[in-house]
């Protein structure tokens, strides 16, 4: 029963619908990623699912319990890691863990096996106040605290925001291990590259899910071509590509630009002529397999 079933959830603040008529389901033991730009309503959705706020309308069952009626039962079976680091900064690592274990009527020893892999990494600092840990360490401690009562579902609100790439990678490895134990994980992130790590992705914007699918299907269903374009003058390149033809989208991707069109094929020779006229040199154009980020950007721009 480690699942979530939401039916037409709606929540507005000051007449702005932050979560707008949202229905979805999360199956047991999957990593469900909610990807979307800042302000798309991810955090509000998490706060509804973790019973911190109640929806204006619609219903939602978490582990079989209703978020409005049985919120007390839900609090025993979910773990929540808010986007902002919110542990007691003046308590040590050890004290924080003991505290949250006690709050959930358990002890650190009882569920040690679950968090051991993560805890050993912060154990050398266990007598240090949580406020004095580095960003990645804080993240690990917060994850330990969210897991200390052996939750069935873990809610992670932007867990990797502001964390370095190495720690991010480690963090996702940890999540995969937790998935193996059977914990359902619902995670939000603004980073598109993390999406491919999820079993299922919901693309969220303006309180709605634009599309829910597996990462592979997102790519497979992408219709159209992606061209990677490079030239000496990157600064002007993006502008020139955007004015090349209507119905074409262009984004800068590191040192090259990705160019895509959902509707018509792009004639590469014509494009090269156009760029030469615009005084670009050393032009390299190649067709690439779309990445998940390409798919999202094209969706968000529709």
């Amino acid at each position: 029963m480690n699942n979530v079933i939401a039916n037409r959830l709606t929540k507005s603040f000051n007449n702005v619908k932050v979560v707008d008529d949202l229905s979805f389901s999360v199956d047991e033991g999957e990593i469900y990623g909610i990807i979307g730009p800042d302000g798309s309503g991810k955090t509000t959705l998490f706060r509804i699912l973790t019973t911190l706020i109640s929806p204006d309308s619609g219903s939602c069952k978490v582990c079989g319990f209703d978020v409005t009626k049985d919120y007390k039962a839900i609090r025993n079976v979910v773990g929540y890691m808010p986007g902002r680091f919110s542990l007691y900064q003046d308590l040590t690592v050890q004290e924080n863990l003991d505290f949250f274990a006690t709050v959930f009527n358990t002890t650190l020893g009882e569920n040690y096996s679950l968090i051991r892999d993560i805890y050993v990494q912060i154990e050398p600092f266990k007598d240090r106040p949580a406020g004095k840990l580095s960003g990645g360490m804080k993240q690990k401690l917060a994850l330990c605290c969210a897991l200390v009562h052996r939750p069935q579902i873990l809610f992670l609100d932007e867990p990797t925001t502001g964390v370095d790439p190495v720690s991010r990678k480690e963090f996702w490895e940890m999540l995969k291990n937790l998935k193996k134990i059977g914990i359902t994980i619902i995670v939000s992130t603004p980073y598109m590259d993390e999406a491919s790590q999820c079993d299922k992705i919901a693309l969220m914007q303006n309180g709605k899910f634009l599309r829910v699918d597996t990462p592979q299907n997102f790519i497979n269903n992408y219709s159209g071509k992606i061209l990677s374009v490079k030239s000496d003058n990157i600064y002007n390149l993006l502008e020139d590509l955007r004015t090349y033809k209507s119905l074409i989208t262009a984004f800068s991707f590191g040192e090259c630009c990705h160019l895509s069109s959902m509707y018509n094929e792009i004639d590469i020779d014509n494009l090269i002529d156009y760029l030469i006229k615009r005084k670009h040199k050393n032009i390299v154009i190649s067709e690439i397999i779309p990445s998940i980020e390409d798919c999202f950007l094209s969706y968000l721009n529709r």
Binding site: K72, Y80, P82, Q89, F100, V103, F104
Partner: peptide, 13 residues
Amino acid sequence: EVGTIEQINVSPI
């Protein structure tokens, strides 16, 4: 203000 109350609020306390 620090946000720790959120953590308490999702607990059975």
